[in-house]
Amino acid sequence: MHGIGSDSEESVPGAPESTLYSFLGRLSAALAGSFNARAVWQLRRQIEYQSHLIRRAEAVLANTEIFERASVAAHMGVWQCELPSERLVWSNGTYDLFGLERRSGIVRSDILRSYSDESLARLEKVRAEALEAGTGFGLDAEIHDPAGGTRWIRISATVERENGEPVRLFGVKQDITEEKQLFERMRYLAGHDVMTGLANRTRFQARFAELCEPGGPGGVLMLIDLDDFKEVNDTFGHALGDECLVEFARRLSALCQSAELVARIGGDEFAVLFGPAVGPQRIEAVAQRIIAAAEAPMNCSGRVFRIGASIGYAFTNGGAPAAVFTKADEALYAAKAAGRCAISSCDTTRRRMTAGDR
């Protein structure tokens, strides 16, 4: 390799001698020797090139810092896993997702302990499939940080291959805990009555249809309508009426813990679905306990009052949902017609005598 003043070979930007240390050595030699126009020209080219490299490095560093700040603010991070060593390289945002100190030397086997059992099983499955096929994968996973918190993260991964063999996995991990909570809340609201927490009419109809499917399990539909509830609303107001509904829903749920579903399907109308193992005698016993619970004094906002309940029920017996519901509804109306606190099936109607009747 010739010196800076040689006429036989030009320095090529980007070649090994173009490193900063080589450049400084050549600059020192040129300053120590006699004036050489070609050497000065080469040095000027080298200075311009080195300045260009420095500007590019500064831009990369600035962009890297901006990306790090943005990813941390967005609760996401970049990750890389080298194969077959399984060595992990994480950005700061990824450390933060797992609640870990930002450091090097993290071990994948240790990180896997952060995943819930179900999420870990799914992760290992889709990861193995992706490495086999050479494709990427996406996965929502539940993790637990050292402080005991639980998060949901969305993992996206790409497989890099060389000569047909996977050599690297890389991608992004993002905190989706709030998104998951919102989704679960929306799903809950889609199937539950907001006031009482019981199943709503939509969820009731779906489960009822399953019980009535041809060849399905079958069961019993019980409809419950509160007695004297309108008077409560008219006398004490709707706010206290709502408290009354919530309290009755609590009592009903406690009595029907073995039921398939307990639902509020209207203003003061409730429905309970029982499975096929529940026979007529048990249904009658449950109905009697529900009426007794409805009659027990209600204490809402410091006011004590009484209501009652009427019940109608019908066995599915392979009937269509609409037909079974009609039978139970007719039995409920028969119970209402018989007087306060009555129980009716499609075949019989009985009135339960209360303290006020005797």
Rank of each mutant, 00 (worst) to 15 (best):
T316P: 12
M76Q: 15
G134S: 10
Q50E: 06
A199F: 06
G14Q: 03
P214Q: 11
V262Y: 14
N317K: 08
I143F: 09
N63M: 07
T94Y: 15
K230M: 06
L221P: 08
K327H: 15
D175V: 01
I283Y: 09
A355T: 12
S310E: 11
A334E: 11
N36K: 05
R352I: 08
L198E: 08
A199E: 04
I47D: 04
L20Y: 08
R26D: 06
A30W: 04
Y188S: 03
Q80I: 07
L123T: 09
A320C: 05
S258P: 14
F183D: 11
W152N: 06
R56L: 14
I47R: 14
A128Y: 02
L198I: 09
G218T: 04
A320H: 02
I66C: 15
A254S: 15
Y95W: 13
G356E: 11
T326H: 14
S11C: 14
G134V: 07
I111Y: 13
V232Q: 01
P13C: 07
D329K: 07
Q174P: 01
G339D: 06
A285Q: 13
W152I: 01
A309E: 05
E118T: 15
P321Q: 09
V232F: 11
Q181G: 05
A355Y: 07
S310I: 10
V159W: 03
I54H: 08
L189G: 14
Q50N: 01
T235Q: 04
T19M: 02
L189Y: 08
A190W: 08
G5R: 12
S114A: 12
I155T: 00
R44M: 06
R340V: 02
L169W: 09
P217S: 03
L112V: 01
H2V: 15
A320N: 03
A199P: 01
L221M: 08
S51F: 15
A57N: 12
T202K: 15
Q181Y: 07
R161Y: 00
T349Q: 00
Y188V: 04
M76F: 09
D140N: 01
P217N: 08
A59G: 12
E17C: 09
A309K: 02
S344R: 01
W41I: 05
